[in-house]
Simulated scan of single mutants.
Amino acid sequence: MRSAYRIDAESGRLTRLNGRSSEGDGPCHVSVDATGRYAFVANYQGATVAAYPLADDGRLGEAADVVAHEGSGPDPERQAAPHPHAIAPGPENRFCYVPDLGTDRIEIYRPDESSALRPTEAEPVTARPGAGPRHIAFHPTEPYCYVVEELESTVSAYKRDPRTGGLVSIDRTSTLPAAFDGDNESADVHVHPSGRWVYVSNRGHDSVGVFAVDAATGRLESVDHEPTRGETPRDIALAPDGSVLLACNQHGDSVVSFAIDGAGRLEFVAALDVPKPVCATFLESA
């Protein structure tokens, strides 16, 4: 099930508007296109992605399209079936990108006027076998995007063709310090609004990796790894002005805020007790 809510501008309280089936088990990610007319959902267990029209008041319409993924990967425990982990509209709002952890692919769709998820002329991108692509983030001004790969704790850089939506691999970097040899699963990735840095969360190392972006090539260079002061940072969020990063420690029962300095590094500010936080977002006032 997925639901739509109205946000009270003064109090921040939520009022439920309606709900629709997510058209698959284990819905794990939702997004809205730049026009505010369509919403998309990825179903991790159900191996499907779905698209919905949005009414003027924000209510969800019936699913306009449902696409089932097929395939598997080399990890018998985590990749026996497809697992779409996110669905993200691209910067031009012409394409949707779906990292599939189970198939090691990044599927690319082009929503039409009815929000149906049509194939594109660009081929799906195949990640390194066993990498497990999870989330994707786009550079604000350059044709680059970054995909965090959960199973191998890596982040891959791609050059993106704005015309076709296609992706070409640039580089692949570990999300961890070289000396770390424990268990880890990378989770979330975001690009700073300035385009100068990329941030990736590490569950196991329990840190946020900070990477500098080479503006000429799109490649990443490790800058720092900041502890999240809690276990299992499943999600991170950047303030729209790039001044603050939030880390959601799912098994640490806390949301931790960091200030971002002029070099992109994180400075601890405060921790808030929150039971099992798995996602955070910033809302901009109208």
Rank of each mutant, 00 (worst) to 15 (best):
T232E: 13
T173C: 09
R2P: 00
L176R: 01
L220D: 05
R59C: 14
G61C: 06
A50W: 03
H251S: 09
E221M: 11
S174W: 07
P277K: 06
R172P: 13
A80W: 04
L220K: 09
L167W: 03
A55D: 13
L272S: 15
D224G: 06
L60F: 04
G46D: 02
F180P: 15
D8Q: 09
A247C: 07
R196Y: 12
V32P: 14
L238D: 10
T15Q: 12
E92F: 10
D65C: 12
S186Y: 01
A157N: 05
A280T: 07
F258M: 00
A216I: 04
S174R: 08
A64K: 09
A137N: 08
T35Y: 04
L246Q: 03
R78S: 09
R265I: 05
A68H: 15
D181C: 11
G262H: 03
P53W: 05
D8V: 12
W197K: 08
R105F: 07
L176N: 02
R196D: 15
P111M: 06
H135L: 03
D8N: 14
S285F: 11
T141A: 10
A4F: 12
R6P: 15
E70D: 15
Y144C: 06
G166D: 05
A9Y: 00
V98A: 02
V147E: 09
A212V: 00
V274T: 10
F95V: 13
F211Y: 15
V191P: 11
A212T: 10
I170L: 13
A215S: 14
A88L: 13
T154R: 08
A137C: 10
F211I: 11
S72H: 13
A179I: 00
G12Y: 01
A50T: 09
A34R: 13
P275W: 00
V125P: 14
S194N: 13
G262S: 13
T48G: 01
G204D: 05
N249F: 06
A237V: 09
